[in-house]
Design a protein around this nucleic acid. Structure first.
Length: 778
DNA sequence: TTTAGGCACGATAAAATACTACT
DNA sequence: AGTAGTATTTTATCGTGCCT
């Protein structure tokens, strides 16, 4: 039969004969498609000048008892023609064995695609696309585990149709530890919450055997609902491992997959729940820089999901809550609400995840867990194979820095009517225009004439004009895709489901296109070529310089500029003239992005605050927007900026700061506003200096608290002598009376507000020494 | 399992300099 | 006056989080 299937997950069966399993949805039903005909493969890269047939024979000699096909092929590696031997086999294990056997044969320079798993190869070679509808010729065979099973006769590739409804399940657990982080070898799970289309459910442990029942209830619930997608928050790093280990201790197997087994650790540190997509929404939160505190609530708020305002509960505070009936109820409600929110978040986020998955060719449950670089890798690999470029292996390379974007010194002070002009997608467009790509870089001298090459100004690098390189093709495809989407969006009602999905697709396309420049300069990239990234950056600098020179020629006063943006004193006609000149002379688009009615610069780059015509305040780079400053300092700075930009008197701003300082000294500010949050970016032992948040973390670790890279540690600076790191106290352990108010006045509030007020000639003393009648009341 | 470089800025650590007590 | 030890100031480095 001919059928359409929507590919949810893909894997290969272990042992015996190699079968690719396509976990799919057919006619709304979860189904398994088996393809036993796919032959995983690898390529042998030959040294220049050797006779391919001779090598072929040598390989044949060593693969007598293995079922392999060998074929000599011509392909391109970094744009250069190479001779390859394509080796395919019915099964990947003997293929890998053969690969290690033949690595010493003279004349073989290396192997390619041997680091790509069969299931990924299946996608790579265009059999089908994950998170998409595909067409296939199928034959029904016997059911497995209650699922319909089909053998794949032929696959006809992806089609564009809206995704089918997917059954979602969200979950969270509560584990209880008297002291220190919960440890699955010691501390039980006391409750588990799930949420799906029917609402929220709580499984609570009661008495001795309670925990086993909770886990069994969970497994039964999963089996009963049979979800396509399971979502959690931090589940890849914590929940799955915890559940599996607790279940084992109780003599159970955490049976939640569609094959009835345990989830298993897979690529990119994520857990694979066979047959289902396991998604950790923490990965999504990590991807969104606007979300400062990576919590369920933070993510929900960002997505506009209605959520009750809840306090953050640090792990340390859990036992305290648990001891009291009210606190216990609060915790149970907390994880119920977590599951409810996760379900709602997943509903909102899924269309984007689906689009990212089908675009990159990574299965849904991997794509979020994978870092950006690996997503780009995956996307490029499919595109490369289409144009006969063979994907290089990932390898370790030395890091070599290069010059990046141009940043101007701003003209400090308050300016009226300032326009911001932004180049649209500067790097992608330059890479297209100059065919900057790993496979078009000219390496040998005199190989290509100057008329056939683009020379990058300010560098020695040259790129072939023809044929279009891998990056250019990909970028053009992505731009084209965006144009198509925009075109289609015009024809349909804006609020419709289709429109929403198209917008998610556009977002996914944009994310990928913008990542390509950074990818090119990442030493871990398969197609890392430093000259590529360097050339794009050099061209960027040349481009903005030319635009600024022209702006000055036209008579526009330049206030500031950074990489691809120019700030000028607004003059409607002159700005229009510049935009037109950029279009005509540089063949690029520069857009009037916004107009500040007032904008304030200090001496510093990358920091400014401006007032837009709609009355809203933009604060860029200032302490206000930095998560590592205490709330009190950020608030003080924000209020100062607001007063000054909205036309208030300097006096008012000064008085306001003085009032705030008095409040601090009088102990009227809650502890919360003094907390300083810092992220742990490496293991504690690797720090070279004794930073406050590291010292706090070390003390916590002593007491049995597990801290991981990426965790945010909140501390306050307490009264006393000595270094800051000696006085830093983990905030749940601190009380209002501990706070060193003078520290916050001198080192947090004053620096933040003086940064602004100094350009209005306000001195530090004017803020600290009480004078003037308005202050006497404090 | 890490897309890039440019930048500000506080805290710590190291180096340079000033100061003090004593011979 | 010379010197060893200590306090203070200056400079360099570390570390984080922002901007484009």
């Amino acid at each position: 039969m001919r059928a359409r299937f929507w590919l949810l997950d893909i894997d290969q069966s272990e042992g015996g004969s190699q079968v690719i399993r396509l976990w799919s949805i057919i006619n709304g039903e979860p189904s398994i498609l088996l393809d036993g005909k796919f032959r995983p493969s690898l390529y042998l890269l030959l040294e220049d000048g050797v006779d391919p047939l001779q090598i072929l024979e040598a390989v044949q000699e060593r693969s007598k008892d293995v079922d392999v096909n060998l074929k000599v092929e011509d392909s391109k590696l970094f744009g250069k023609m190479v001779k390859l031997i394509h080796v395919d086999c019915s099964c990947s294990t003997p293929l890998q064995e053969l690969a290690s056997n033949i690595s010493r044969i003279k004349g073989i320079r290396g192997q390619l695609l041997d680091d790509v798993r069969p299931s990924m190869q299946y996608i790579l070679y265009g059999r089908c696309s994950p998170s998409s509808w595909n067409e296939a010729e199928l034959t029904r065979v016997e059911d497995i585990g209650g699922y319909k099973v089909y053998m794949v006769e032929e696959v006809y590739g992806p089609r564009e149709d809206p995704q089918p409804p997917l059954k979602l399940l969200a979950f969270d657990i509560l584990s209880l530890s008297e002291t220190g982080s919960p440890n699955p070898d010691r501390d039980p799970i006391v409750a588990l919450s799930v949420a799906d289309g029917d609402g929220v459910k709580l499984f609570e442990a009661e008495g001795e055997r309670g925990e086993a029942l909770v886990i069994k209830d969970f497994m039964e619930y999963v089996a009963g609902l049979d979800p396509d997608v399971i979502v959690g928050f931090n589940s890849n790093r914590f929940h799955w491992n915890y559940l599996i280990r607790r279940a084992r201790r109780l003599g159970l197997t955490l049976s939640v997959t569609r094959m009835g087994g345990e989830p298993h650790q897979s690529l990119y540190g994520h857990f694979s729940v066979t047959g289902r997509a396991n998604i950790d929404l923490r990965d999504l939160a990590e991807d969104i820089p606007e979300i400062k505190l990576k919590t369920i609530d933070g993510l929900a708020r960002f997505l506009g999901i209605e959520a009750v305002e809840r306090p953050i509960v640090e792990a340390m505070e859990v036992p305290e809550y648990w001891r009291e009936t009210r606190g216990r109820e609060f915790l149970l409600e907390y994880i119920e609400e977590n599951a409810r929110l996760l379900y709602a978040i997943a509903g909102e986020a899924l269309p984007f995840i689906v689009q990212l998955s089908s675009l990159t060719g990574m299965p849904m449950d991997q794509v979020l867990a994978a870092a950006v670089g690996f997503r780009v890798d995956s996307y490029l690999m499919r595109e490369a194979l289409r144009i006969g470029e063979i994907p290089p292996r990932r390898e370790e390379r030395p890091y070599q820095p290069y010059r990046g974007g141009l940043v101007l010194n701003p003209k400090p002070g308050l300016h009226e009517k300032v326009a911001v002009l932004d180049f649209t997608s500067m790097y992608p467009n330059l890479m297209i225009a100059y065919n900057i790509s790993p496979d078009t870089l000219i390496v040998g001298e005199g190989e290509v004439g100057d008329e056939d090459a683009h020379t990058i100004p300010g560098t020695e690098y040259r790129f072939r004009k023809e044929p279009p390189g891998l990056y250019k093709r990909c970028l053009l495809n992505l731009l084209e895709a965006r144009r198509n989407i925009k075109e289609r969006l015009r024809g349909i009602p804006p609020g419709s489901v289709e429109a929403k999905i198209l917008k998610e697709r556009e977002h996914a396309v944009k994310v990928l296109a913008n990542a390509l420049y950074g990818y090119a300069g990442w030493t871990g990239a398969r197609w890392y070529v430093r000259e590529v990234a360097e050339s794009a950056a050099a061209l960027g600098r040349a481009t903005i310089r030319r635009a600024m020179e022209e702006a000055e020629k036209i008579g526009l006063e330049i206030i500031y500029g950074d990489t691809d943006s120019i700030f000028v004193r607004y003059d409607k006609n002159k700005v229009a003239e510049l935009i037109e000149w950029v279009r005509r002379e540089l063949d690029l688009e520069i857009k009037l992005e916004k107009i500040y009615s007032r904008i304030l610069f200090t001496e510093a780059k990358k920091k400014y605050a401006g007032l837009l015509s709609d009355g809203s305040l933009d604060m860029v780079g200032m302490e206000v927007v930095r998560g590592d400053w205490a709330e009190i300092a950020r608030r003080a700075q924000e209020e100062t900026l607001k007063i000054l930009l909205e036309g208030g008197e300097v006096r008012d701003a000064v008085d306001n700061v003085r009032r705030l300082i008095s409040e601090i000294r009088a102990g009227k500010i809650p502890l919360r506003e003094f907390v300083i949050w810092k992220t742990l970016t490496r293991p504690l032992e690797e720090y070279k200096v004794r930073a406050p948040h590291v010292e706090v973390s070390k003390r916590l670790k002593e007491k049995g608290w597990r801290l991981e890279i990426g965790d945010k540690v909140g501390y306050i600076v307490a009264k006393g002598d000595g270094k800051i790191y000696e006085r830093a106290v983990y905030y749940p352990e601190a009380s209002e009376g501990d706070v060193d108010h003078e520290y916050y006045v001198e080192n947090q509030v004053l620096p933040a507000v003086l940064r602004i007020l100094e350009s209005f000639n306000v001195k530090r003393e004017a803020l600290t020494m009480p004078k003037g009648s308005t202050l006497l009341e404090f």
